[in-house]
Amino acid sequence: MAMFRTAALAAAIALVPGAAALAWEPTKPVEFVVTSGPGGGTDTFARVVQSIATKNKLINQPIIVVNKGGGSGAEGFVHGKAGKGDPHRVVFGTNNAYLLPYVAKLAFKPADFTPVASLALDEFLIWVNGSAPFDDAKAYLDAVKAKPSGFKMAGSQSKDTDQTLTAMIEQATGAKWIYVPFQGGGVAATQLAGGHVDSNTNNPNENIGQWKAGQVKPLCVFSPVRLAKSEAIFNGKGWGDIPTCKEAGLPLEAFQMPRTVWLPAEVPADSVKFYEDVLEKVSQTDEWKEFIARTAQTPRFMKGKEFTDFVARDEAANRKVFETEGWVVK
């Protein structure tokens, strides 16, 4: 009984905002809510963070990872929203946290979450089949423009990042593809390798296996600067040798997907600070840097105003595309 009372007391102290003299610490197991199925990009992200945090003892309570990937992750966000005020429920996602409510009628909105941090940016590239006659993005785009709806673009899901990017390119250049939605980036990669579609906009790690074999080749990357140099992957070329799409003459500045972490609404401010610190420490470990390099993502830790500004900019840019394409649900 005595033990119970102290635990309750500790919990009470932690919840009183004024008692910030004691920094917030989790008082029960922390739940990592993953807004994708097992094996998805967000799943890997959350599990890597989990393993680094556990190994370096950054969180003094056990971490339990739960996959709630239904409805493109909506299930996880609805679950996160239900934890209002509970700082033991950490939601992992991408830009789906603030974009999903635009394109589907859902029972959550971005205001139901407290932004914590973003740990990395995943990149997008234009890939074509390895034996395609195009050597740069311009040549490919010219061919597409010459034959509207004559080329097929593969991506994962509908009204998600791949189709949004495709729509952005279309709106910026006047090209027009037939967009074919598949279940995931892996299938989009093999469909391109098998020559069933003409291009895809996969993330680096979704296509690297096929690139190594020369079955697909990258044309350009939607990043403001070139990717970090790497060892050669195929034909003496590595990630750093791929031109940015801007260099290649596409009027598109950048398209990147943040790896984001959220808490439910109305959690104590010092609990947000706690997770910011944990995640910042995670992002400085060698394991994290190695993981980022392997998957050719761009390491960029954002928290506080920097993060919310990024979200606002990204949301505005995407919303414009959604509105033009008529995807926004009332």
């Binding site: 239904g70 409805g71 493109s72 909506a74 394109v103 589907a104 009628k105 859902l106 899901q157 509908s158 009204k159 998600d160 189709q163 939605p181 598949f182 279940q183 995807w327």
Partner: peptide, 8 residues
């Protein structure tokens, strides 16, 4: 989720 249309 209907992955082909993106509708729920």
């Amino acid at each position: 989720m209907d992955s082909v249309s993106g509708n729920i």
